[in-house]
Computed example of a mutant assay.
Amino acid sequence: GPYRVGRFEQGRFIEYERVKDYWAKDLPFALGSNNFDVLRIEFYRERQAAFEAFKKGKIVWREEFTSKIWATEYNFPAMKENRARKELFADEPIPALQGWACNMRRTKLANPLTRQAIGLCFDFEWTNTNFFYDAYTRSSSFFENSTFAATDKPSQEELAHLEPLRSQLSDEAFGSAVTQPVSDGSGRDRKMLRQANQLFMAAGWIRDGKILVDKNGAPFTLEFLIRSPTFERILGKFVANLNALGVQASIRLVDPSQYQKRLDEFDFDITGTARAFGALPTADTLKQLFGSAAASTPGAPNLAGIKEPAIDTLIEKISSAQNLDELTILLRALDRVLRSTHSWIPNWYSANHRVAYWDMFGVPDRKPTYGFSPELFWWFDKDKAKAIGKA
Rank of each mutant, 00 (worst) to 15 (best):
A244S: 15
E232R: 15
R207N: 10
F8R: 13
L235S: 07
I251G: 00
L162F: 13
K55V: 03
V254W: 13
R47C: 03
T285Q: 15
W100H: 13
D37P: 04
S186C: 05
A90M: 10
R138I: 14
W205E: 00
Q260P: 01
T328R: 15
N35T: 02
I206N: 10
K215G: 06
A203R: 05
A117S: 05
N103Y: 00
L109K: 00
V254K: 02
R194T: 15
S140T: 09
L327W: 10
Q195G: 03
K237T: 14
P219G: 03
F277Q: 00
L334I: 06
E265H: 07
K210P: 00
N35D: 01
Q98M: 12
E223Y: 04
D214E: 08
K261T: 14
D152C: 06
D26P: 06
P298W: 05
L27C: 07
Y357S: 14
W379T: 01
N128E: 05
Q168P: 07
P346V: 01
F54N: 00
E144W: 03
E52N: 14
Q258Y: 04
G11M: 10
I69P: 00
F51Q: 04
Q322T: 08
D284H: 07
A249K: 04
L120Y: 14
W358E: 11
P309C: 12
F238C: 02
A160W: 11
